[in-house]
Amino acid sequence: MRRLHLTRRHALAAGLSLAAALALGSPAHADGFPDRQITMVVPFAAGGSTDVVARIVAQKMSDDLGQQVIVQNVAGAGGNLGADNVARAEPDGYTILMGTVATHALNPLILKSTPYDAEKDFAPISLLVVVPNVLIVNPELPVKTVAELVALLKAEPGKYSYASSGNGTPLHLSGELFKSMAGVEMEHIPYKGSGPALNDVIGNQVPIMFDNLPSSSGHIKTGTLRGLAVTTKERAPSFPEMPTVGESVPGYETYTWNALFAPAGTPPEVVARLNVAAGKALADPAVAERMTEFSATVVGSTPEELAAHVKAEIAKWTPVVRDAKIQLD
């Protein structure tokens, strides 16, 4: 199989000229897959963390598959539009989805009706990365630990608010789970995405926030925000000093994950081929390095492991969503 070795000049040419299309047709595989470009649907806007993961992985998968894997952003309805598009696409492996905890665990629980079934309508390909969330506060808030925050919130119930990237997002649910497990009261202030929310926390308009670790790690390092704890079970490798929320609120664990899915009914050999390509992309040292800088942990999995993971995630979030009484139309 011929590989696409991109030099800087070639890479540029690929975008600006015909090179991308003329690049390569790989005849190497027995079943002939893939013989044309593959579309990876990202169900969120370009530039977000899911999009970045998708573009890094898609680039490397193209190298292995010998066909371009192009990223298409189909944003809308908290990821449901893009996920639904893929669920209804031809099950031939040429349309795949960059799924997340939102599209495959939370949305089906939160929404009164989801147009697809997270388990039955998809053929899992591979889990890719796990991204920790982080509990951050404005440095002017007089708390340095999760325990102090809990004490402050208990002393003045209802006085403080917390920001999130939107209603029903994994970060909102991280906050709601924290409220119910720690037994505290905070007012939820939703924003349109993480950026504006972060802005208001830095400006101390809202003192507390749950965020993805990648988007606020720069602020934690420079001290414009105080990171109290990460939400994963283990401490984050990029912040070994920072405790986990679970160390103060036993049993607390949330995180965001990204995984590839094909439409249900995709031939197993095609799924297997895509799984291999995804695995090779994740094993690439450059990718691993980027992901680590980005505070994401490369995981990878077999299709079966991903199916089990989705089932486990749904089981985990069902009681949380029910207890927090989050129900959207």
Partner: peptide
């Protein structure tokens, strides 16, 4: 389709 590389299928199903 070629130069800007917009992700459209040139010929559909």
């Amino acid at each position: 389709s070629y130069a800007l590389g917009l992700p459209f299928q040139r010929f559909g199903p």
